[in-house]
Design a protein around this nucleic acid. Structure first.
Lengths: 198, 198
DNA sequence: TTGCATACATACATGCATGTATGTATTGTT
DNA sequence: AACAATACATACATGCATGTATGTATGCAA
């Protein structure tokens, strides 16, 4: 029978091995990039053989999809943010995470190899929902004239993330200046929004 | 003797082959990315065999360095720009070039593989001189308080370049809004600079 | 025209990643 | 206890990129 006790030993072992493979995939993509993240490298980091990887993920791209879903789940913008400023702060905390480099790597990899785009299509759409400018847009304000501010802040977040990704995860000397500028823009927009709603 | 007529046939042939190899390298890096740009792929595009590549570039990284130098030479910001706005316009025309993707690819590749960073160190320093925020800073204005504007514009240029690189070279639906915002920021800064100089 | 250097092309050996098939030990079921 | 399924490890074959060695044709100089 398929039905087994919930504290199945094999099941727990499988989950642990899967988690280690997924974690090793993320670490490898952060440190080695997308193209140098190979099955051999993942198994080396996870401390298992390729037999284990093939057993749990017969289709290699499924492992990458699982890893990407885990990355995106940790990079979700706070959904209950009320002001644009708070959304900017929350998103900033996302893009400065080392895992954000994986998102950028995937963008470029799927552009360089269309097959990757199709194989990881589900993960990519997940990405857009987590980082789309829509998450930056307050539902109570939607004037076309102010879209530029939202998109500009969105682009600046991406740029900061790229800067971190290309600097070993460390902030550049001027990152804080850019962040302060972003906060100013967000606060101005927030105050305009309040005035418009009054 | 080494001294030959300036219109040496062999010399012209060599230059032509080198140019084709360098051009094929750039094209491959734009279309296939850094990691998938291989000696085989370059030779296939250039229409020569790997023997020719090895003859002209016994050290493979020398070919990449030559290709990157050519990329950077075509992405130089206009040195005689007078206003910040004109510099932004000029830099914008650079980052929307397909070749700018090569710059981003190199940033990530050298981060993923430190060996690449050391091998292509000369090309990378070339990059910093071509895209450093210093090129955005007017020599007549250098107030620390206004640095944030320059760095913010710099980051936005990078973000636009990344957006192009991850969208097949085509502009996103909101790119023009961001560009207009950048021009506004630049014009405001320009007018403040004039007032300060009066 | 003879000899040498240049500019390639071809061929072989090596390393690495992947796909796949099979062996094996542990776990779970009856 | 016997059988079967799970969770691996090991081994083999293949493809691709690279390094290198050698063959060869053309240009150039004496």
């Amino acid at each position: 029978m398929k039905t087994q006790s919930p504290t199945n030993l094999n099941d727990a072992r499988s989950r642990a091995t899967r988690a280690r493979l997924i974690g090793a995939s993320i670490d490898s993509m952060i440190e080695c990039g997308f193209s140098k993240t190979t099955g051999v490298e993942i198994c080396r980091r996870a401390g298992v053989t390729r037999g284990a990887l093939n057993h749990h993920f017969p289709v290699y791209s499924d492992l990458l999809i699982a890893a990407l879903h885990q990355v995106y789940s940790t990079l979700q913008t706070e959904p209950d943010a009320t002001s644009l400023e708070s959304i900017v702060r929350s998103s900033y905390n996302n893009v400065i995470q080392p895992a954000f480099k994986v998102v950028i790597e995937l963008w470029l990899a799927s552009q360089n190899d269309p097959d990757i785009g199709t194989e990881l299509a589900s993960a990519i759409s997940d990405s857009s929902s987590a980082f789309s400018p829509k998450s930056l847009r307050r539902s109570d304000i939607n004037e076309p004239a102010t879209d530029a501010i939202y998109y500009t802040l969105f682009e600046l977040l991406i740029a900061i993330g790229l800067g971190r990704a290309t600097s070993g995860g460390k902030a550049s000397a001027h990152e804080h200046m850019v962040f302060e500028t972003m906060l100013n823009l967000a606060q101005q927009q927030d105050s305009r929004g309040v005035k418009n709603n009054e």
